[in-house]
């Protein structure tokens, strides 16, 4: 699961109001190289919750992202490449996504997050 996926997920448990971002517990992470595509990455820049990405990347052991994004960085290739790496190349293979409000753990197995709830959570 790349961090882009993480950035799109919130805890979906009934009654939870502060469900984003999910905390990451890493059992196994991997890096996979992906072709750099400036169009895609620029397009995603406006859709990503930056702070959540910075924290997620840090949880995965990558601390190179700036705390905030300034206008103008969009044209900075060095920045875009770091963003690209954090968003698309770092994968959570095995571990958990943890609801920030309840502590409920959503498993990530073979890189796929499972957000299915038990009956009493819906």
């Amino acid at each position: 699961m790349r961090l882009l996926t993480h950035n799109m997920l919130s805890s979906n448990i009934k009654g939870v109001t502060q469900g984003f971002p999910l905390q990451i517990e890493v059992t196994k992470s991997i890096t996979k190289q992906v072709d750099f595509n400036p169009d895609f990455i620029k397009n995603m820049l406006v859709k990503v919750e930056w702070k959540a990405l910075v924290e997620a990347a840090r949880a995965m052991g990558y601390g190179e992202l700036p705390e905030t994004v300034e206008v103008g960085m969009v044209e900075d290739e060095d920045f875009l490449r770091k963003f690209h790496h954090a968003l698309l190349e770092i994968h959570l293979e095995e571990g958990f996504l943890v609801c920030p409000q309840t502590g409920r753990k959503f498993p990530v197995c073979k890189g796929i997050p499972n957000m299915l709830l038990n009956e009493d959570e819906v």
Binding site: L9, S10, E49, P113, M115, L116
Partner: peptide, 21 residues
């Protein structure tokens, strides 16, 4: 093809961040 995949009921857990996107 690159895509994000999630095991979920319809789009539960994605509906907040993907709202109107």
């Amino acid at each position: 093809i690159d895509a994000d995949l999630v095991i979920t009921d319809v789009a539960s857990g994605l509906d907040k961040r993907l709202e109107k996107l």
